[in-house]
Simulated assay, not measured.
Amino acid sequence: MASAPVDKSKSYFPLAGLATDGWSTEDEATATCFCGAVQLSFPTHGDGFVASFVCNCADCHKLTASVHASNFTVKDTHLKHLRGQENLKKFGQSKTVFYKEDGKDNTMTNYFCSTCGSLMYRVGAAFPGMSILRLGSVDDFTLMETKLKPTMEQFTKDRVSWKKPTEGAKQYEEDGLH
């Protein structure tokens, strides 16, 4: 028996992980780790929202254990830790970071839930005042196809041959953020 199609014009919160208290409004939404210990809220548009993009760089391949990462960037002034900030563990390095300036800090730091291991966001020295979140952590799945739909795809030179370009996204062979 086929299930009814999802109405993507309305919020859609499928069973995904253990938390059941995600929400979205016209201006904000939540992102939650798999176990539910960590929850963030972020703007979905406006001054605090920077961009949504797909990244095919080697670090994103390895970090996500997938062929690309689906990301969005928000200003730190607009990112709120609703719960679990003390549950986050961090790991940073600069050896493989794609954007490097001589004489400057090039570290990219990843913040993971220490309980379930979900990557909640990344903070890069090359992106001061911003955090890079993962689309897969967003609780309202409709936002991934509406307000948070990627508008850019970067490091297409490292995209696997069987993955088509992200529809509607501007394509960059390398870094599209600088």
Rank of each mutant, 00 (worst) to 15 (best):
K157A: 14
P128I: 11
G176C: 03
D139L: 02
G48P: 10
S24F: 05
S9I: 10
Q85A: 15
T115M: 05
K164V: 11
G48V: 13
K62R: 15
S118T: 09
P150G: 04
A126Q: 09
Y172S: 04
P14H: 10
R83F: 03
M144H: 09
E86V: 04
C35T: 01
G48H: 06
V74K: 11
L79V: 06
E145P: 03
S161D: 15
F34W: 11
R159G: 01
V74C: 10
H81G: 02
C60N: 03
P14R: 06
S9G: 05
Q93H: 09
N106Y: 13
Q154G: 00
T151R: 07
A58H: 13
T109G: 06
A169H: 03
T25Y: 00
T96E: 11
E167T: 14
G124I: 01
D139Q: 12
D59T: 04
F127I: 03
Y12W: 15
G168A: 01
P43L: 01
T142I: 00
K164L: 14
T30I: 01
T156I: 09
G103D: 08
K95L: 12
K147N: 08
F155W: 13
F112R: 12
T73L: 04
Q93R: 13
G84E: 05
T32Y: 07
F42I: 05
E101I: 14
L79R: 04
T30M: 02
Q93I: 00
G103S: 10
E173V: 05
S3L: 05
C57M: 08
L133G: 03
V54S: 04
L15V: 14
T20Y: 00
Q39Y: 06
Q39H: 09
E173K: 14
K8P: 02
L82V: 08
Q171D: 01
F91V: 13
G117A: 04
G124C: 12
Y12T: 01
H68M: 11
K95I: 10
S11W: 01
I132A: 02
Y121A: 09
F155T: 03
L143C: 03
A65I: 07
V97F: 07
R134I: 06
C116M: 09
V97G: 02
